[in-house]
Design a protein around this nucleic acid. Structure first.
Lengths: 235, 235
DNA sequence: CTGGCTTGTAACAAAATTGTAACCTGAAGG
DNA sequence: CCTTCAGGTTACAATTTTGTTACAAGCCAG
């Protein structure tokens, strides 16, 4: 699962810091903005998965920003969690009406923050629900997370699964090890490129069942490719 | 698909208004009632597809009404979503036990409301008349809340029951711990994800009787799945 | 109020996965 | 024929993930 990006919008630095710490601990990637202006450009630019928006902002208020976001096509799908101070409770209803997905009252525990955030993400998340992919008797079904070769179940690790999923959705094209690390492992990890070789090997082993491992092809000096056509080397 | 009819039961007019606006926007037809009395006659009379029921009502409380509905033959099949104010969270379990299908804490976002409502409708639609579900000798009877394996009664806690019910109505699909918390525990709870593991374990233990625990399968790195087919790992 | 049952968590055990290094193989190019 | 080097294989320890057990707190019937 690729890492989620959260945008923190708050004008108080210590609060931002606290939020960032809590979020990074829970393995989220953070962006920060101190005002509505820069927040907006960050949103358009980086497309965060969720926005943590303080109610009080200098200049344009948080609620104003929220309203604006919900009006724009590109940004209206991004869930928003409002931060409000104690005593501003009336604003909650207003905030939610504007389209915020949840709200949190300061002060709050990091745990609560992360819990709510997860709840919102899991609700708005998913629905990239593609149907099963089948090629030459090899089937990958994202819904059940199952691989079969001619209806025989195939067992492999999570990384191999993601690798195969990527290959199946990007056939007939060569990817360098570096690109594979980006797409399958997720951008900001540091692992040796040769690690890819090992997982390619593991994937091939898993697909051996009916010779289906021949689809995972090596392109010397370039990288790997998933292709139904036979490789030049065995022609 | 014919338009669904939702009955809103709440004594506060502004809340009813807000709900109606949200629901009509999502293309539902609305009925309204301010007290349990008129709610009940509307239900019998108009047969709504779903009831949004406020916890707090003058006279008969919401929960009382819910209990009453679930006892009566005609009305027991209609799904109920409970509305509770923040802080009344403890009541949630009670609400679910009475037979509510979900519950939402005020204040909530219109989007959340509609999302949950859709989820509940979808759930009760597909597996229509709450008849007993049987697979491979394993039977779950919603009416009597009983589980049997080859006619042998099986004992488990309420959470395990709901978990199994969810699995039986959503076979062949992986659910993350997070999603299970959402669907089985109800969205707004905040419990550790590992808690799911423990309940999975309890469910498996209960189903051991005739090896039926093998249907509850672990999908490493993803979550759990209920499937009659064997898992790849034991092939 | 008591005793039994359920529930969420923590803690520990077991198992599977992951990244690396080391070594092996075969092809390309001289 | 030899060298070089990209890629193939294997082994393994660290890390992650899941299984299992124990336990304190909450709830409810009696």
């Amino acid at each position: 699962m690729p890492q989620k990006t959260i945008l923190i919008v708050d004008d108080e630095t210590p609060i931002r810091d606290m939020l960032r710490v809590a979020l990074e601990m829970a393995d989220y990637h953070c962006l920060e903005a101190a005002d509505a202006q820069s927040a907006h450009s960050l949103i358009v630019d980086r497309k965060p998965d969720l926005i943590l928006l303080d109610w009080m902002l200098p200049g344009t208020s948080g609620i104003e920003l929220a309203r604006r976001l919900k009006r724009e096509e590109v940004t209206s799908q991004i869930p928003v969690i409002m931060l409000t101070a104690k005593g501003e409770e009336d604003n909650k209803v207003q905030g939610l009406e504007v389209g915020a997905d949840d709200y949190i009252t300061k002060p709050f525990s990091p745990r609560e923050l992360v819990a709510r955030l997860k709840a919102v993400l899991r609700r708005t998340d998913n629905f990239s629900d593609n149907g099963p992919i089948t090629v030459e008797g090899l089937t990958l079904d994202p819904a059940s997370h199952r691989i079969t070769i001619n209806d025989q179940p195939v067992q492999m690790g999570p990384t191999e699964y993601r690798l195969l999923e990527f290959f199946l959705t990007h056939q007939e094209r060569v990817y360098t090890r570096s690109q594979l690390l980006d797409h399958v492992w997720g951008g900001n990890v540091y692992v040796e490129e040769r690690t890819v070789d090992v997982h390619i090997r593991r994937l091939r082993k898993a697909l051996q069942l009916d010779g289906h491992d021949r689809f995972v092809q090596t392109v010397r000096g370039a990288g790997y490719r998933f292709s139904l056509k036979i490789a030049a080397s065995e022609a």
